[in-house]
Design a binder for these strands. Structure first.
Lengths: 131, 131
DNA sequence: TTAAAACTACGAAATAATTCGTTAAAATAC
DNA sequence: GTATTTTAACGAATTATTTCGTAGTTTTAA
């Protein structure tokens, strides 16, 4: 039986998901090529992780051909939303403003990025009908 | 020798740090009382975690009296900043704006909170001399 | 002054996460 | 057609995290 709920990806799993989101559906070999540029890791390590992820329901795979093709089950956005939400709860006592404040301090965004943030908030206000 | 660098707190460790930040320097018993309200856990489990945290340098302890008093070594702000920074790197490709966008979507902040966020950003712009 | 309670230290079990070697089968190259 | 390469499967070692029992002291209460 497939997995019903949504375990949170671990750090290594997230790294693999990033590759799948960037490249689209990919083989283990393709993911391995990308990851092994960043860190020293064996092919079978990546394979095993992706098999585990399939077991957890984090990815699906197409086994039609001998070389299986893996695909992230949840979108990047949705996963990000979940991770941020959990961090807000675990480290900011539920305060989104608290996290945003630290994000600013932590990153010193550039003018461009600041404008982007500003427009995100404007957009959000309109959607929510706040003003 | 004490620990030189800064291991990231695990989830359980963060929960303990939250208590120390909220209460100030505390005994194991005091931390245990708070945590055991939220979840079912044994006294020696909390004790052991706090001993491990002392070993890692996440907390210091005063052993002058038989009942040791533990203190968070890093401030809540600094720890939050680190956790947010890591999440931005691991899940948002380094984009603070990306994280802030998801924080908004994830939490649907209230009018009050939105105003708070707005003023955080204004304050940041002034400090950084952006405008 | 004995009994009970509180406390630290520590070993060790249980679970989760990461890593990779080995095997066997299929595909490819020669 | 045989050898090499590629692949999936899987067992198992390693490390990290969480959990708690037991032992031995000190403190407190009766």
């Amino acid at each position: 039986m497939p997995q019903a709920n949504h375990p949170r990806p671990t750090e290594s799993e997230l790294q693999i998901l990033e590759v799948l989101w960037a490249r689209g559906p990919s083989t283990v070999r393709e993911v391995f090529e990308v990851i092994s540029e960043a860190r020293d890791v064996g092919y079978t390590t990546v394979l095993k992780l992706m098999q585990i992820m399939a077991g957890k329901g984090l990815v699906t795979r197409d086994e039609a051909r001998r070389t299986h093709v893996y695909k992230a089950r949840l979108s990047r956005k949705r996963t990000q939303k979940r991770l941020v939400g959990e961090l807000i709860d675990k480290a900011f006592g539920g305060s989104a403003a608290g996290l945003i404040g630290q994000a600013l301090m932590s990153r010193k965004p550039s003018d461009d990025e600041l404008r982007e943030i500003h427009s995100l908030i404007e957009q959000y206000r309109k959607e929510q009908g706040h003003d």
